[in-house]
């Protein structure tokens, strides 16, 4: 399985929750934090289940999500 993580640009996020609906492994959740504009934003759960599918980024209307793929270069 591919692995990844996302970075949410706090001041672009409006907490519309479309990313939460798009994320199959449920790695995004509503946060208690608010951004400058007063939107209740979302945050990444970081439970190691993100598969770098980019669907959250694609659906995010506000271009607030950067998706990073983590590539294992050495087997443990």
């Amino acid at each position: 399985m591919r692995k990844g993580r996302i970075i949410i640009e706090v001041d672009r996020c409006k907490g519309c929750l479309l990313c939460i609906a798009a994320c199959k492994p449920k790695q995004i959740k509503i946060s208690k934090k608010m951004n400058k504009t007063g939107y209740n934003i979302v945050e990444f759960c970081d439970e190691g289940k993100c598969n770098a599918c980019t669907l959250c980024g694609i659906i995010c209307p506000d271009a607030a999500i950067e998706v990073i793929e983590i590539i294992e270069t050495e087997k443990k």
Partner: peptide, 10 residues
């Protein structure tokens, strides 16, 4: 070891 690559961004 792992490396990171941005695959989607603004």
């Amino acid at each position: 070891m792992s490396t990171e690559k941005t695959i989607y961004k603004k």
